[in-house]
Simulated scan of single mutants.
Amino acid sequence: MMVVRPVRDTDREALHSLAAKTGPGFTSLQDDESLISAKLEAAARAFQPHDKQEASYLFVMEDTETQKVIGICGIEAAVGLHDPWYTYHVGVQVHASRELNVYTRHETLTLNNNHTGHSELCTLFLDPDYRKDKNGHLLSKSRFLFMAEHPTRFYHSVIAEMRGFSENGVSPFWEGLGRNFFTMDFAQADRLSSKDKGFIAELMPKHTIYVHLLPEEAQKVIGQTHEQTTPARRLLESEGFRYNNYVDIFDAGPTLESRVQDIRAVRESRYVKIQVGNTSGRGELSLLSTLSLTDFRCCMTQADVLGHGIMQIDASTAEALQVKTGDTLRTAALFGRPVL
């Protein structure tokens, strides 16, 4: 049974193991002791009864049979309130002259801080050996039940930065633009940005950039997603997230956005009383989560709907969630219902 729970200090080595598998471009999880320590400390502060403006919630997925941590995901309560949050907005400028009968339309990139204060889904990574059995859906969507249960801890809109296209650790967008101002490799700039984003403001161009002046290889990847991140993008889009022409300033990966209340799993989630017993195995695959802040736990199972707001779950699910008959849980279907 897979269960998602808040990270603990005892997960330190597991985080190092996962970080070693992420590769260049995965800014939010680097195999660096100081960064991992900072994440653990921030998470310990976040899961406290009082609200935090810039709380960093970090969760891990654990295989309860082996007690192995095999995935990680996070939520930033609000970005950009302390350190500036930069993206490029992909826009359009038109140049026209009636006299010369000339009309040109050019895509542009403008550095901005428009997502300041938004909540952010981040640090989603699943061990490649466990990318099966809908584990990725559980890992990602568990955060939506947490946000639904604790809405006052988050901004009304949420973003998710998708990893941009790169090949063998080389980003065409970085090579075509960023390297001209930073004179360093993409991987090095990526590592630096995970520790301190101040140098971005110091070195990035402040003026509008015309996309057609960039190398063709850089132009092609604007708004494109890394092949390993494409499934995560499709998952978020199925939940209601959309690309609104904002991209990462390093690799030009797309930023997806949604209002929290418009997220399908948040909107459809509801409370149920649970009953522990044998199940038919024919129930709808559902997410189930506890209501606790500090002891939040989430798993997926084929529970039986008994009616009157009651669901029956088997003993292994109850053990994973650490609940008993009569407890209240939040639930949502793992997948949205088709529109008829």
Rank of each mutant, 00 (worst) to 15 (best):
E268L: 05
V247C: 08
A20C: 09
T116H: 13
L15Q: 04
S194G: 10
V272G: 03
S286K: 12
E227N: 12
A42N: 06
D133W: 06
E76S: 13
L100R: 14
V92F: 03
R259S: 15
R264A: 13
P84L: 09
Q188W: 00
S17R: 12
F47W: 10
G136H: 05
T27W: 09
L287K: 00
V60D: 01
Q48I: 04
S140N: 10
A318W: 02
G223V: 06
D251H: 07
T87H: 07
G307H: 07
Q219K: 06
A42T: 08
G169F: 10
L213F: 12
T152N: 15
E319I: 02
A189F: 02
Q219V: 06
Q322I: 09
Q53V: 05
L256F: 01
T294C: 01
S238I: 04
F296V: 08
N180L: 13
S97P: 09
F181E: 10
T328A: 05
A160T: 06
S17W: 00
N168D: 13
F181L: 12
E175G: 02
N112M: 01
F154M: 04
L18N: 04
D327N: 14
V170H: 12
G253C: 07
H106D: 12
V260C: 11
D127G: 05
A43G: 13
W174D: 00
T290D: 04
I70E: 11
G117R: 03
D314E: 14
H82A: 14
T87A: 11
T230H: 09
E33I: 13
S119V: 02
D196Y: 13
D295C: 05
I263Q: 01
Y271T: 09
D190C: 08
R259P: 03
Y86Q: 06
T108N: 05
I313M: 04
L126T: 06
D190H: 10
E161Q: 02
D185N: 11
